[in-house]
Structure formats: structure tokens, C-alpha cells
Design a protein around this nucleic acid. Structure first.
Length: 584
RNA sequence: GGCCUCGUAGCUCAGUCGGAUAGAGCAACAGCCUUCUAAGCUGUGGGUCACUGGUUCGAAUCCAGUCGAGGUCACCA
């Protein structure tokens, strides 16, 4: 039910006819032209640039081609007028029944409107992947919300999406975590541990872990050398941290279907080592030396021969080391094996959502995916920029070093999941985000979260009013679908209908470009046009949705309100924001 | 110094595979409403799209360079 796609097909057929008649060359690419709503609605309902796109190949003027297309278009059903404007735009005005059909479609199928057909395409979407060394902070929250909304969006568009979390449970940081927990364990047994030493995690969130260890092991691990406890505690503390992170994510309505452990790539089977051997045989890994890093001089720099991944062949700037000087694997080595596993599990389209501080890592990872998949898989990395937390326009201080940084949980507890999600999606992912804790809970037009949710609640309120005015009436979708929709003919009402008809096109574009923020902006526009229409009813009582003296008209208008409510709920669903029945 | 992301109205930001007179909210200004559909409504002013050049029928959008902001730069994850 996408009238723009519908017209795209129709015009493609016409272009095909023109090819047969010799007006256009045979090798034109029929997917290249656009069919879209004109910027100015006075130009009509639908606009296409087809004539301009093909004028050059046909070596004639855009207007000549436009004339021929227009000639065919005019013979189609439901076309009120076809005009050629500006440099060669074709502007089409269509009969109202197109829009009325949109409303009927929505009423018959409120959840399916705008959704794409189910495809076999499997997409692996990795997001959050916060290190299991502490609670999530606000920056993680942005990646979590963005990734989750993108998953919902791609799923709605018809793709088969696997939502994945990569647990960085290998490497030195995990030992640091285990030692930090051990210290809290000694504390729980009554030892005075004093200040947390430099290099260990100072956060108070490890205190309960220490208490849990004390309850479980008593004093049996006290005063024992590290080798006797570290491997057990490592597992326990990682599980505790992951439980905490999962709880944070569930507060945000963020879900994953796969949690993939980095450690599982090395134990019990050394997948990383096997992959390195394999890539050495293929010549993608070689022994070599790296030039010293540019910029600031690092005193610890040592020049040594090592195993290098030839990522420059796939677009990276330098080749990358895989094994540290102590013999363990670099993070990159594990990550290659991890992404190879995604490919081996049958995914050829991979999307990773990362924080902006990992921007320098993108090229090598995309290179690695090309290399291990033999060019069959493509990795697309989406970076989320920083979040600047504000309160009434003043920055909120964060200090990760002291361990008392603002956690994601604190923010959710203060303003709620809906506000966090909507505001984080009300911006492009690659632009920095100012998040004002005071503004997002305001109940006013200045707060987009409230504004959009309120539009949904207000639709509901209209139905309550209608039920009071017509106690005997049946306002179910089935009945409303039989209403005489041609009665919805005020220009402001038509504006809302046009916007509703654009929903499928907007969803498709948002999914294609992986930009869930477009959904948020669309909803804001839709809410705005609805609130505006509602307010017109103040001055012009004949424009009110519920008209006590005219049940027929009320039915028609409620059909519009019903559709509006469905689309608002659908869009909010993609964002993972609730659609309240009333505002409290 | 290399690489990445970005630069649009006083502020915060949208801008559709390149398309028509570059949009919205806030702020400012001017009216209206002060409740007969629930937390206001309507209108006005405001931009050299950082700068320069290139590509073309057409550039905020693509390319090159310059300036500016942030991020990042063997062996951390």
C-alpha cells in the first residue's frame, strides 16, 4: 500500500513503452528515477524527475520526454491532472480515492501498514557490546537504543534480523575485574582494604559481588595466591556484571537474541589460532615489522617482527598486529574470528553499532570481513556520537575515573524509558546529542516525546468523546471502514491523509539508510499536523471530529483518527516507545 | 602529522540514490484565547548551507583543496 511505489511501477511501464516506440534508448536503468511527494503540496500529490533523468541518454530535451510520459499518464485511472513544471518535473494530481484506500487499508490491517514483505535476507546486527566491567553509562545507552530501534526497523521492513551482543570476557581487563572483586571479597570478610589501588575498578557496584563471594566461599580463598582463585572469580564476576547489564538493557526495552562470548573463541578450542593459521596459508597474514606510530612519541614502542594482518590490501591504512609481545592475541585477532563466525553462521550482511571513540577501528574491521569472507560478506559500521547530558541547559558532570559517573540506570529511573529512547532517536546517530534531563519530562509542546505520545492519547480521547456523544454507535475498525470517506475533504484533513500515505515510503527509506531517526521526525510531523487539525476545531466547530448532529460525518472523521492512531502506534513501536491511551 | 565524524537561521537540529522558492522547534516580534474536544492557537521577521574551485541541465547534497570543531592513532578492550 505504497502509492509512490505504485506510481513508480506505472511510470516504469510507460518508460518501457517509450523504449519500444524508439523515443528512449534500450539500455536505460529503470530504477534510477524517483517518485516522491513534491516539496510544495500545491504542485500536486506525486512528482517524478523521470524526464530529467533520461533526457541526456535520449539526447533530447527533458520537456519533450515529459510530454510523452504525461500523455500516457493521463490515460491511467484516477489521474486528475498531469503538469510539467520547472526544468521537467512531472506533477500529478490524483483522485481522492487513492487516499481513501490508504485509510481503508490501515483499518483492515493496522499493524501491517508500512511493513515490508518478508525477505530471506539475514542480517546480523551487533550492538551495545559494552565491556562487562561495570554498569552501562549514558553513551552505551545511545548505542543500545539505536541498535535496538534499527533492529525493529529492519524487521518491520521485512528482513530477518539477529540481534547480537559480543561479550568481551577475555583479555587483561577481566583479570583486573576479578582482582577488584577479590578485594571487595576481602572487604566483605571484614578486612580494612583502605583506598582502592590505582589500576583496579573502584566502583561500588562490586561490593555486592564481594559479599556474594564471601557468602559462597567463606574465608576459604582469603590469603591464597591469585592462581588459586582468579579463574573461578573471573567467571563469577563476569556473570554478575552481565546480569547487571542485562537488567539495565531490559529497563530500556532493549533485547538481544545472541550473547556471544569472546572467551569461547579461545577456549576450549582455539578458534583464533586456527583462523590465523588458515589466513597465513592464504597469505593474508605475514611476518613483518610495523613503522612506529606517528604523532606523539611512545617510549614503550618496540620494533619487532610479528604476525601482521594485511588489511591495507582491503582498504585499511596500515597492516595490523594480531599477537601481543606476551604471546596472547590482540583484541583485533579475536574480533576477526568473531566476525568470521558470523559469516560461517550464514550472514553476509553484518551491521555493527559502535561508539564514536572506536571510529579508528572501522576500516580494519571492514577490511577483515572482506578478507575472511572472500568478499562475500559486507560489514557496515554505524557510529554513535557522544551524549552530552544536561539539566536545564547546564552540563551534568561525569567522572568515570572516580567510579561515580552517571549510569544509564540513574537516567532511566529519573526520566523513564520512553523519554530516553525517543530523545536518543530524535537525532542522527552520527551527530552529538544533547540530552536535557529537565526538558524531556516537561508536559508541553517543547518536549517532542510528550508531543508525539500525547497525539496518540488524544486520538484515543476523541474516541471516548465519540462514545459519549453516540452511545449506541459502533466505532470498530470494520464499521469505520464502511464510512463515506469522501466527506473528509477539508484541506487540513487532506494534509494529514497525505502524510499518512507517506508512511510506507518513509519506513522503507529509513530502513534502507539505517536511519531510525527518520521515523522519530516523521512522527513529530504527523503529531504536529494532527494537533493543528484538532485545534482548528476550536475556531471552526464544523471541523471537529465528533459532530453531535451528523453521525455520518463523525464516522468518516473517526476513520481518519483511527488510521492516525494506528500509524502513530506503529511508528512508536518501531522506536520502542510506548503509545499511551491517556496521559497522566 | 595520518585517519574518522562533522560544519545549515541568534540557539538546538531536519533536509529523500543530486531536483523546484533550503525547512521545523525554541528564542524574538504581532495578534488571538484565557477554555464550549485536556496541558494553548495563528501569523511575521530571520540563512553567502564554513570557504574556494571542479563535475552537470541542476549541488546544502558528489569530488579536490583550505579553514574550524570533536574523536582516534603498535603492544588497551
Amino acid at each position: 500500500m505504497n502509492i509512490f511505489n505504485d506510481f513508480h511501477r506505472r511510470i516504469a511501464v510507460i518508460l518501457g513503452t517509450l523504449v519500444k516506440q524508439g523515443h528512449l534508448p534500450a539500455d536505460i536503468d529503470l530504477s534510477r528515477f524517483a517518485v516522491e511527494p513534491p516539496r510544495d503540496s500545491s504542485h500536486g500529490d506525486i512528482s517524478t524527475n523521470a524526464a530529467m533523468v533520461y533526457a541526456k541518454q535520449a539526447s533530447c530535451k527533458p520537456r519533450d520526454i515529459a510530454d510523452k510520459i504525461a500523455e500516457h499518464l493521463q490515460r491511467e485511472d484516477g489521474i486528475l491532472s498531469v503538469d510539467i513544471a520547472g526544468p521537467g518535473f512531472i506533477n500529478i494530481k490524483i483522485a481522492p480515492y487513492f487516499y481513501e484506500n490508504v485509510l481503508r487499508f490501515v483499518m483492515a490491517n493496522p499493524d501491517g501498514f508500512g511493513s515490508g514483505e518478508r525477505r530471506l535476507e539475514k542480517i546480523n546486527l551487533e550492538y551495545v557490546s559494552a565491556n562487562p566491567t561495570g554498569p552501562m553509562h549514558v553513551g552505551h545507552g545511545r548505542g543500545a537504543v539505536f541498535g535496538d530501534a534499527l533492529a525493529r526497523l529492519l524487521d518491520f521492513d521485512g528482513a530477518d534480523v539477529t540481534r547480537e551482543y559480543y561479550i568481551n570476557d577475555a583479555g587483561a581487563q577481566v583479570d583486573v575485574l576479578a582482582r577488584s572483586a577479590y578485594l571487595r571479597y576481602r572487604e566483605a570478610l571484614g578486612e580494612d582494604i583502605g583506598a582502592i589501588p590505582e589500576g583496579l575498578y573502584p566502583g561500588e557496584y562490586l561490593i555486592p559481588v564481594g559479599e556474594m563471594l564471601a557468602a559462597r566461599y567463606g574465608s576459604s580463598l582469603q590469603n591464597k595466591p591469585e592462581v588459586e582463585w582468579i579463574s573461578d572469580i573471573r567467571v563469577i564476576v563476569i556473570n554478575a556484571m552481565m546480569d547487571m547489564i542485562r537488567e539495565d538493557l531490559s529497563q530500556l526495552q532493549v533485547k538481544h537474541s545472541v550473547f556471544f562470548s569472546e572467551r569461547s573463541l579461545q577456549m576450549p578450542v582455539d578458534t583464533v589460532g586456527a583462523l590465523i593459521t588458515d589466513l597465513e596459508e592464504k597469505g593474508i597474514i605475514y611476518k613483518g615489522r610495523l613503522p612506529p606510530p606517528k604523532g606523539q612519541v611512545d617510549e614503550d614502542w618496540e620494533d619487532r617482527e610479528q604476525a601482521l594482518f594485511a588489511s591495507t590490501r582491503y582498504g585499511d591504512d596500515v597492516d595490523r598486529p594480531l599477537v601481543k609481545s606476551d604471546g596472547s592475541y590482540t583484541y583485533f585477532a579475536s574480533d576477526i574470528a568473531y566476525h568470521a563466525s558470523k559469516f560461517n553462521r550464514g550472514y553476509t550482511r553484518l551491521i555493527d553499532v559502535w561508539g564514536a571513540d572506536h571510529g579508528g577501528y572501522v576500516k580494519r574491521m571492514e577490511a577483515a570481513v572482506k578478507a575472511v569472507s572472500g568478499g562475500k560478506a559486507v560489514l557496515d559500521v554505524k557510529l554513535c556520537q557522544l551524549v552530552k547530558l544536561m539539566r536545564n541547559g547546564e552540563p551534568v558532570k561525569m567522572s568515570k575515573r572516580s567510579g561515580d559517573f552517571v549510569t544509564l540506570r540513574e537516567v532511566i529511573d529519573e526520566v523513564g524509558c520512553d523519554a530516553v529512547r525517543f530523545m536518543m532517536l530524535f537525532r542522527k546517530n552520527d551527530a552529538t546529542l544533547e540530552f536535557d534531563l529537565a526538558k524531556v519530562i516537561e508536559q508541553s509542546k517543547d518536549n517532542p516525546v510528550f508531543y508525539v505520545q500525547y497525539a496518540h492519547a488524544r486520538c484515543n480521547s476523541v474516541f471516548r468523546q465519540a462514545a459519549a456523544a453516540f452511545p449506541e454507535a459502533d466505532f470498530s475498525a470494520e464499521t469505520l471502514a464502511t464510512a463515506d470517506l469522501s466527506l473528509i475533504n477539508d484541506e487540513s484533513e487532506r494534509g494529514v491523509m497525505r502524510l499518512l500515505a507517506e508512511y510506507p515510503r518513509m519506513v522503507e527509506a529509513a530502513a534502507t539508510s539505517c536511519e531510525p531517526h527518520r521515523v522519530a521526525f516523521y512522527l513529530y510531523d504527523l503529531a504536529s499536523s494532527f494537533h493543528s487539525l484538532w485545534n482548528r476545531g476550536k475556531d471552526h466547530h464544523n471541523l471537529r471530529f465528533v459532530n453531535q448532529n451528523d453521525g455520518i460525518l463523525t464516522y468518516a472523521r473517526l476513520a481518519l483518527v483511527y488510521s492516525l492512531k494506528s500509524v502513530l502506534a506503529s511508528g512508536l513501536g518501531i522506536l520502542g516507545v510506548s503509545a499511551p491511551q491517556e496521559m497522566r
